[in-house]
Simulated assay, not measured.
Amino acid sequence: MIGPLADGPVDVHAHWLPEELFALPPGAPYGPLHDRDGELHLGAVPLSIATRAMSDVPAIRADMAAAGIGVRVLSAPPFAFPVAGPAAAYVEAFNSALGAIVAGSGGALVGLGLVSLDAPGPATAQLEELAGRPGIAGVAVPPLLAGASLDRGVLRHVLGEASRLGLSVLVHPMQLPRPEWADHYLANLVGNPVETATAVAALLLGGVREALPDLRVCFVHGGGCTPGLLGRWDHGWRTRPDVRRDSTRPPGEAVRALWFDTVTHDPGLLDLLVARVGKEAVVCGSDHPFDMAQRDPVGFATGVGLDAAALTANARAFLGAGR
């Protein structure tokens, strides 16, 4: 439930986690987070960011001012997603802490909460609670869970309930480890875009968006590999009955009902994204405070011809805040 937003550009993709939750959910595949001389580490791995950039609200507000951001949407970093079993206490602690900082921000901060991902029942109860929290627009979820994506299992249930409750959904990859991606940061550089494209394909080919016409869902990092694969998906949809079994529209058409952020690191790729999904589907994102963040999100987007006011209107539509 979000009220009036502050003026200025909206950054839909930024992360926050209070220090008291650095232990991460039970069974988390990474971590825990900890501070070492002011620098944030995930387990033994340095994250190349200052600890306060993740957890300190004044530091986040200062970064917003420097980047010309009027409204920043905060979600948990993906390693805090509760993907390894029951985590109701952690979810409640995060949502309560997030609700407290966004409710007192004068519309400059908006929250996307967490939900348990081990069973449908707890997720429904948590989503219903999020829908009543001031300053909370929706929920952030991973693109993959237990061998399934957005068209099956708990993730599909969460999308259905979010649509019913009028909540926005941000889909963020988890940088899942694979042996062939062990070196050169490939779990991020290759894995993240592949995870996201898998989720977009599952949503479109699985008929989820058709079944949930009111669903507001945004994919980060420009949709990962999606812009370059839509032509291939369309060809498969036209030529193979198993590809089009659960959907009535080719992916290249259905994709225009989704949102995608601008964190592409490549003006040419951002141009391609706009060409494939339409200007109305693109929203400004930063990925603050990570090393792969777009440090000047508004300047990057407007530098390729996107209009700042239109990006803000798109973000407000995604958040259910109108214009």
Score class of each variant (00 low, 15 high):
residue 117 L to F: 05
residue 13 H to Y: 12
residue 6 A to M: 05
residue 299 G to E: 13
residue 119 A to H: 14
residue 199 A to V: 08
residue 258 L to D: 11
residue 9 P to D: 12
residue 317 A to W: 01
residue 183 D to L: 14
residue 142 P to R: 06
residue 141 V to W: 02
residue 254 A to H: 03
residue 258 L to V: 10
residue 159 L to C: 06
residue 34 H to N: 13
residue 56 D to F: 08
residue 239 T to A: 13
residue 12 V to P: 06
residue 118 D to A: 14
residue 200 V to T: 13
residue 23 A to S: 15
residue 285 G to P: 05
residue 61 R to G: 02
residue 3 G to M: 04
residue 155 L to G: 02
residue 190 V to I: 15
residue 132 G to E: 13
residue 89 A to G: 15
residue 87 A to D: 11
residue 155 L to W: 02
residue 267 P to W: 04
residue 171 V to R: 02
residue 211 A to W: 00
residue 19 E to P: 10
residue 4 P to W: 00
residue 20 E to L: 03
residue 263 V to W: 02
residue 71 V to M: 09
residue 291 D to M: 01
residue 263 V to Q: 01
residue 236 G to C: 08
residue 321 A to Q: 08
residue 35 D to K: 06
residue 143 P to V: 05
residue 284 C to V: 09
residue 73 V to Y: 03
residue 251 P to Y: 07
residue 103 A to P: 02
residue 28 A to E: 05
residue 261 D to H: 04
residue 323 R to L: 05
residue 98 L to Y: 09
residue 299 G to M: 10
residue 55 S to E: 00
residue 41 H to I: 03
residue 260 F to Q: 02
residue 292 M to G: 03
residue 144 L to E: 00
residue 25 P to W: 00
residue 70 G to W: 04
residue 238 R to A: 14
residue 198 T to Y: 04
residue 77 P to M: 08
residue 153 G to R: 12
residue 70 G to A: 09
residue 145 L to V: 05
residue 177 P to E: 13
residue 276 R to E: 15
residue 98 L to P: 10
residue 259 W to D: 13
residue 74 L to W: 03
residue 221 H to C: 07
residue 280 E to T: 12
residue 188 N to S: 14
residue 315 A to M: 07
residue 158 V to Q: 03
residue 263 V to I: 13
residue 142 P to D: 05
residue 62 A to Y: 01
residue 116 S to T: 13
residue 56 D to W: 12
residue 269 L to C: 11
residue 194 V to E: 12
residue 308 A to D: 08
residue 309 A to N: 09
residue 8 G to C: 07
residue 104 G to E: 12
residue 42 L to I: 09
residue 227 P to A: 09
